[in-house]
């Protein structure tokens, strides 16, 4: 593998990794406030992809769009993905997790509920929209924008990385600077004390889900523009992002970003060095190795302490 090849692979890995990072934040935020592995988050991601497809099918992009039109289409898709993702996450929390929280159910019960909800949602999507891959309507001509060390960077890749960066920065600001963020951190540290200090736990949890859902939805749309939208598209990226969240130290926002980028790069290099069939082996091998030496992930746990 020559040097220029490895640049190609690195760019691919970073693009993939920034998507994983955005999804992983959804896992990590929810884990921070609920200590719940939200298996159904991969379905939120899938819903985002369908949101983008639905919105773009309604507006029917022009055949040869101008630059301005293309930007509008992309923004529209992002918004639609975010809205559908956020709605699904909100509904999920209201319908499935809140009744469990009311009765202090043990965590395994939460996990099984999440698994059940995941099965329900992706099969429902398959039923409503058909069980076959759907291509995202063309929004722009996917040209090469510029080259880095001989590696061509396309518009899609640029959009994915750009949107991911904006979202990561926004989440960092929200968690660290806003009132909602201090609520999230307070609930993550100690829910009982937080509620004694006047934090409305229900509201914080609900909004955390919505925040994670917005991010997951946008990631779903971006993933769909890169590849295709399908009812089962959430499962594998969901599990990898979940692994990324654990790798970085679950509950830790910056850890999730680091873990996501790392797993994306590892995955790209695994595919390049071995073959596409071994895609997920490299990522999980790295995960197991890291956890053997750092059992709480790269950056340690908890939103409250380390974000």
């Amino acid at each position: 593998m020559s040097l220029s090849d490895s640049w190609d692979v690195l760019v691919l890995g970073l693009v993939l990794g920034s998507l994983y990072a955005v999804i992983a934040i959804g896992y990590t935020l929810v884990y921070g406030v609920l200590q719940l592995l939200n298996f159904a988050h991969s379905e939120v991601f899938m819903a985002g992809g369908f949101g983008g497809v639905i919105a773009l099918t309604i507006v029917e992009p022009a055949v040869d769009p101008s630059g301005m039109q293309s930007a509008v289409y992309v923004l529209l898709g992002i918004c639609a993905g975010a809205i559908l993702g956020g709605t699904i996450a909100f509904g999920l929390e209201k319908a499935a997790y809140r009744p469990l929280r009311r009765r202090n159910a043990p965590r395994l019960v939460f996990l099984i509920t999440a698994i059940g909800a995941s099965f329900f949602l992706y099969n429902l999507a398959g039923k409503l929209f058909g069980r076959y891959p759907i291509a995202m309507p063309t929004m722009y001509e996917n040209k090469t924008v510029f080259t880095v060390f001989g590696t061509r960077v396309s518009i899609t890749q640029l959009i994915i990385v750009g949107a991911a960066l904006v979202m990561l920065a926004a989440v960092d600001v929200i968690v660290n600077r806003t009132k909602l963020g201090s609520g999230i951190r307070a609930v993550a540290q100690d829910p009982e004390v937080a509620s004694l200090m006047g934090v409305d736990i229900d509201k914080v949890v609900s909004r955390t889900f919505v925040l994670g859902g917005l991010l997951g939805g946008v990631a779903g749309f971006l993933f769909g523009t890169n590849l295709q939208v399908e009812y089962t598209m959430g499962f594998l990226p969901g599990i990898t992002a979940f692994a990324a969240a654990v790798l970085g130290g679950i509950g830790n926002v910056r850890g999730a970003v680091l873990g996501g980028l790392l797993l994306g790069v590892v995955e790209a290099f695994t595919v390049e060095i071995w073959s596409d069939a071994w895609r997920y082996v490299g990522a999980f091998a790295v995960l197991v190795l890291v956890l053997m030496f750092r059992p709480t992930g790269l950056l340690g746990e908890r939103v409250g302490r380390a974000a």
Partner: peptide
């Protein structure tokens, strides 16, 4: 029911069961 929908019902059943009889 439609054979393809079976696991949707299974998932729904799991959620309802966990809410009412954890």
């Amino acid at each position: 029911v439609d054979a393809q929908d079976r696991y949707m019902y299974l998932g729904g059943l799991l959620v309802v069961m966990m809410i009412y009889r954890p």
